[in-house]
Structure formats: structure tokens, C-alpha cells
Design a protein around this nucleic acid. Structure first.
Length: 507
RNA sequence: GGCGCUAUCGUCUAGGGGUUAGGACGUCAGAUUCUCAAUCUGAAAACCCGGGUUCGAUUCCCGGUAGCGCUACCA
């Protein structure tokens, strides 16, 4: 049997292959998204925990794409998922393995199970089953597959096959007894066989169901620890039954609590952004998202919230994972991101800002920030860094630092442009600034303050009004640093522009 | 409906038979100041309910309730 293991796409090559010295524990885990959507933050956390566990113990992290749902799977989505994982820095050691390329193997396994008597063909049509289910529901009876095809004689099976009736293959669940396992997170889990039905392994179209696919793949990939969402807890006993029927070793299981929306419902599109890509678009840093996600269900030792990745790897333990579901708190993510933005080394932040500006149609080099003014760009980013909560702030709230095309925030106008004397004051300030030498923080501040004193107004009035004039915002860094960042010419023209705007009645 | 799992501030969580039940986000107040952010100080804010075990339960056990998950020829 040959595994269809492929190297990841181009991005994968950017990351150095894992040194073999790191892989020594024999532990093998996998993350197995299905390309029916983008990488969900819940999936990202599952991937993260798998990755952390693997790195912590020196194991292998495998990526598998569960694309057996032909109707809903899309190849572009696979690419998007891989990109999101790479962006998060969750690099895999093997794969991606595509289930769609292993169909023959699943069929073989189903047939083996049938041969050994652990599975049997079922000729019931989906319509028949649907009808029985509806009937049971109408009578308020619990429905479970009734085993109609369970005891068909060999002759009867042959007869039906000869008639060309399509059949699925079902697993034969023992009538009595129970199956239990020790979940690494949830502890002892046990279910009675009588509560399980004979589930389908292979659909009548020859495609495997999830149960067959996972077990076959986890077996062939020699996965030692299955770490996945808690929504699979109920499926686990079925899969254990399959391992036993196959006389194969049963891996360890660890289920992770689910991530919910603010209304405590499972996180979904109606809660807003749920995909990793969406947060990336919104200017969230990968390290911030990872740090935020890791805390949803796991607490590092010590009362720290900001956890460097090396420490996550060093301290991560499956057994320390929480058992209860967690609400995805956007506020905390925002805080976490601002922490990371503020503490990012300037040389790492700059290219990200450039990309953000370009994305927003504001070339960083436009409007006076010519290449030769690289130094000024550096200083501007540095000036804004402490106030940025996301990368998007640079093209949004801080727009005026990168282009002359910006508008005055109505709230800011209302707050700081009330005084009737302002137009004259602002023009006067512009004129004084034209003659200020040198044009630095100390001198410009002195100029403004002495003007204020002369005119008998509070310096704050002029400072705040000038801030709105220069940035369009009520919120910005210290005014004199802003002046320096913008440069004398731009400061003067913006002041005059604001004064004219005010005289025109705010039009 | 059946089965399974879970339950500490609004949120993420620490803790654990006797604690002032700790931290973080958010909120509120104050300091600072040219706005905001940052920073500092302070405040409000939690053990789901009922039984049991125990000298003593938020912690252990049982029941209830609530939430979530599974209950497909989805994954």
C-alpha cells in the first residue's frame, strides 16, 4: 500500500525542513481540515494544539485534506487553508495527504471488514431510510438503523447484487457491551453499544464516509494521538470499534472544547469574521492570533497572557487543556493584537505597513514620501506604532500621514473646531511656523505657545485645532511630532486649508 | 426525543475540603497630558440550583437545571 504523500505547495519550501534531531519521540499527530470552507479559527486552534503537542514532544505534525465530500470540496479552498496555516507559522512535516487520492484504499479496507464479518452490504436506499426515520420521528420513537440488511443470507445478497441494486457497506456494531476510552482532555468516556447504530462505511457510490476515511488514514499514517474538536467525541467509540475489528492499535485521543460566539452558540458566519484569512485582512498579526487562540482552552504556567511561541512549545500539555467551551472574545483579540503591534521590531513592522498602504491604494512613497525620504517614513511608522491596534489603522485612522487626501472626522470637528476665533488663529500659526527655525519639536512648540499667549487663548485650544487640521482626527500622536513627521510645507498648507474650510462654514 | 460531555466575575481562566477565591480582557473612577493610546493607582464584578459525605464544601458524590455536541450514504 502506497501513501500518496506530497510536499506542500511552494510556501512550504520557505520553511526549513524539520531537522531529524527534532523528530525523535515517535509521536505522530495530524490536522485534517476539509476544504469546504476557509480555515476557521476553531480549526486553527485545533491545528495549533496539534502542532504545539508535536513540537513539545518532538513528534511529527501531518497535514491531511479531507476532501471526500465531492460536492462541497473546492481545490481553491485547499490552497487558502494551506496559506492560512503557513501564515500562522503552523508548518507541517508530512503531507498534505489528500483523501480523494486514496479512494481505492478505503474500498479495500471496507471490503476487508466485510470479509471478516465486521461489515456487511446494505441495500436500503436513502429514500427508504429517510422514510423510516420520518416515521419513527412522527411516532416520537428514537430512530436507529434497524438492521434490515444485517442478516441477509449470502444467497440473498448475491441475488440483490445480480439485480444491480446499489449497496453501501455498514459496520456491524456489537449488540451488547460497551466501548470506552480515556480521553487525554475529558477523561473516561463510555458508551453502550445499544446506543450505536450500524453506521455506513462506504457509500453506495464507492466513496468513504468520514469514519472510514479517518480510521484508514490515521492507521496508514501511523497517527499516535488524535487531537480534534469535541464534536467528535461521540464518534470516537465507533472508530475504536473499527480499529479493534481491524486488529489495529488504537491511538490516544484528545478532544478540544469548542469555540463559541458571544451568544454561546457555536461560532459561525453570523457572528462575523470566523476565518483566519478575514483576521489577516483586518490587520491582525499572526503571532497575536496564535497567542489569543492558544489561551482559549489552555493556560500557561505563571500568570502570563503574552506567551512567546517557544514558551508555548515548552509548556504545552494536553492534560492541562480546559474541558469547557470558550467564547471568542473580539475585544481581547484586539488588545492582544495591539500588544503585538506595539512590540514588533520597527524593521518588521515597516514592510507590513507598506503592504497595508499599498493594499489601500496609498503607496507609502506617494505624496511626499519619496524614496529619498525613507528616513521620514521610518520615523512616521515609529510615531504611529504605539497607537496602532491593527495594521489597518495605518491606512485608516492614520491615513493623513501617508496622503493629502483625507477628510476631517466630524466628531473631531465638533469637539475641537468650535471656537469662532480659530480661522484667524490657525492662519496666524501657519505664518509663524513658516518662519520658525529650526523646524523641530522644541521650536514649533515654542512658536505655538507664544502665539497662544499673545492672543490670550489656551495653548490646548490651538493644539487640538491644529491636530484636526493636520490629521483630520481628534486622536493622534503629540502635535509637534506630527508636524515634524509631515514636514513644514505640508503643515503650512494643511493649516491654511483648514482655516479656509472653517471660514467656508465647514464645507 | 435518545446518548454523551460541560458548568468559577460580562468574557478567557487559576485554584482547590478551611483562601480576603488569584490573574487577564472589558467596564468605571482617579493620576498624567495637547487629544488619544500607552503607563500608574483604585473600584465594581464569579464558585448554576438542591440534596448528601464531612467538624467544614465552591472543591468530593448523587439529582436537577442550563449550555453544547452527536444522533446522515456531511466532515
Amino acid at each position: 500500500m502506497v501513501l500518496l504523500v506530497q510536499r506542500g505547495p511552494r510556501l512550504n519550501r520557505l520553511i526549513a525542513p524539520s531537522p531529524s534531531s527534532r523528530i525523535m519521540s515517535g509521536v505522530r499527530v495530524r490536522f485534517a481540515p476539509s476544504p469546504t470552507g476557509y480555515l476557521h479559527v476553531g480549526g486553527a486552534r485545533t491545528a495549533l494544539y496539534n502542532w504545539l503537542f508535536a513540537r513539545h514532544v518532538g513528534g511529527v505534525f501531518i497535514l491531511r485534506i479531507e476532501d471526500t465530500d465531492m460536492d462541497r470540496s473546492k481545490p481553491e479552498l485547499t490552497t487558502a487553508i494551506l496559506e492560512s496555516l503557513e501564515w500562522l507559522g503552523l508548518t507541517w512535516d508530512e503531507g498534505p495527504v489528500y483523501q480523494s487520492q486514496r479512494l481505492a484504499r478505503y474500498r479495500e479496507m471496507a471490503l476487508n471488514l466485510e470479509r471478516s464479518g465486521h461489515a456487511y452490504p446494505c441495500f436500503c436506499t436513502p429514500e427508504e431510510l429517510q422514510a423510516k426515520r420520518a416515521q419513527a420521528e412522527a411516532e416520537r420513537r428514537a430512530w436507529k438503523y434497524d438492521g434490515a440488511c444485517r442478516a441477509l443470507s449470502a444467497a440473498e445478497r448475491e441475488r440483490r447484487r445480480a439485480e444491480g441494486r446499489p449497496s453501501a457497506i455498514r459496520f456491524r456494531v456489537p449488540d451488547s457491551g460497551q466501548t470506552s476510552f480515556e480521553d487525554q482532555v475529558f477523561g473516561h468516556i463510555e458508551v453502550q453499544h445499544r446506543d450505536l447504530e450500524d453506521f455506513v462505511l462506504l457509500r453506495s457510490d464507492g466513496h468513504p464516509t468520514y469514519h472510514l476515511g479517518v480510521v484508514a488514514d490515521d492507521l496508514d499514517l501511523r497517527v499516535t494521538h488524535v487531537i480534534r474538536g469535541a464534536d467528535h467525541i461521540s464518534n470516537t467509540p465507533k472508530q475504536i470499534l473499527m480499529y479493534r475489528a481491524l486488529e489495529a492499535p488504537v491511538p490516544a485521543f484528545a478532544h478540544l472544547p469548542l469555540i463559541l460566539g458571544p451568544d454561546k452558540q457555536r461560532l459561525s458566519k453570523r457572528h462575523g469574521a470566523t476565518s483566519v484569512g478575514a483576521y489577516r485582512e483586518q490587520g491582525v498579526l499572526p503571532e497575536a492570533l496564535v497567542n489569543f487562540l492558544v489561551l482559549l482552552g489552555w493556560t500557561p504556567p505563571g500568570q502570563k497572557e503574552i506567551v512567546p511561541r517557544e514558551e508555548m512549545i515548552r509548556d504545552f500539555e494536553l492534560t492541562a487543556v480546559s474541558k469547557s467551551n470558550a467564547v471568542f472574545d473580539l475585544e481581547k483579540l484586539a488588545w492582544m493584537n495591539s500588544e503585538y503591534v506595539r512590540n514588533l521590531p520597527a524593521e518588521q513592522l515597516r514592510p507590513l505597513v507598506e503592504r497595508e498602504l499599498t493594499k489601500a491604494g496609498l503607496g507609502a512613497r506617494d505624496s511626499g514620501f519619496a524614496p529619498r525620504q525613507e528616513e521620514r517614513f521610518k520615523q512616521t511608522v515609529l510615531l504611529l506604532q504605539s497607537r496602532a491596534r491593527t495594521l489597518q489603522d495605518f491606512s485608516g485612522a492614520f491615513r493623513a500621514f501617508f496622503t493629502d487626501e483625507f477628510t476631517y472626522d466630524p466628531e473631531a470637528e465638533k469637539k475641537f473646531w468650535k471656537d469662532a476665533a480659530l480661522p484667524a488663529l490657525i492662519d496666524a500659526l501657519a505664518e509663524r511656523l513658516a518662519a520658525t527655525e529650526p523646524f523641530d519639536v522644541a521650536a514649533t512648540e515654542k512658536t505655538l505657545r507664544s502665539l497662544a499667549e499673545e492672543k490670550g487663548v489656551k495653548a490646548g485650544l490651538l493644539i487640538n485645532a491644529a491636530r484636526v487640521a493636520l490629521t483630520g482626527q481628534a486622536v493622534a500622536p503629540g502635535l509637534f511630532e506630527v508636524m515634524l513627521a509631515l514636514g513644514r510645507d505640508r503643515v503650512i498648507s494643511r493649516l491654511h486649508r483648514a482655516a479656509a474650510h472653517l471660514r467656508a462654514g465647514g464645507k
